[in-house]
């Protein structure tokens, strides 16, 4: 009886905290769900001319990176993002890069090819920067949760592990609706007992 009660408590705690084994630092960097604001939607063309809408990524964790070819710190992050794209692409994760180069694709396309960037790149504009709070330094990166809300913002270069921890934390977080369904299951189980 005691073991069953303990198991129930653990299960309930697990359901309500997300059962995550993510590092504590990632939890600290990621905003609490109630504090997350919706990421402004946008519609931009990628390097292949295909339309990219942020809203199409609902249900996925998205790392939205504002960068430019002339930005040295941005150059450091690109190989990390290439790794993340490879590592997590099958786990509902995507990276979207928005270049703020004045000359647009003229600089950006050769750069994508040289650096073998494997995630989608778009060319941004002033309006989009303003929608994201006035992006005034690069790199600026928004980590967006499955519900399309901004879970964390990084201005300037941070470590690869910091991004990785946050991505894993958000990927492992329960999907919306999961808690309620699981909680109903537990209650039904308790009532049956």
């Amino acid at each position: 009886m005691f073991h069953r009660a303990f198991a129930l408590i653990v299960l309930a705690a697990c359901v309500f905290t997300g059962c995550s084994n993510s590092p504590t630092s990632a939890k600290a960097a990621v905003k609490a769900e109630k504090d997350r604001k919706p990421a402004p939607d946008f519609s931009l063309k990628d390097a292949n001319g295909k339309t990219v809408k942020l809203s199409d990524y609902r249900g996925k964790v998205v790392l939205l990176n504002f960068w430019a070819t002339w930005c040295g710190p941005c150059k450091i992050e690109i190989p990390w993002f290439i790794d993340f794209e490879q590592q997590y692409k099958d786990r509902d994760f995507a990276i979207l890069g928005i270049s703020l180069d004045d000359d647009g694709w003229e600089s950006v396309k050769p750069y994508i090819e040289q650096r073998k960037i494997n995630y989608r790149i778009m060319v941004g504009n002033d309006e989009l920067s303003q929608q994201y709070g006035g992006v005034d330094s690069l790199p600026t990166t928004f980590v967006i949760d499955r519900e399309g809300r901004i879970a964390s913002i990084h201005i300037g270069l941070v470590s690869k592990s910091e991004y990785q921890d946050e991505i894993v934390h958000l990927l492992e977080a329960p999907r919306r609706g999961t808690n309620r369904t699981a909680a109903r299951g537990i209650l039904a189980f308790v009532r049956a007992e």
Partner: peptide, 12 residues
């Protein structure tokens, strides 16, 4: 000109 610190860059 285009300025940077050790961690970030400002646009030209």
């Amino acid at each position: 000109y285009q300025a940077c610190t050790d961690r970030l860059c400002l646009p030209p």
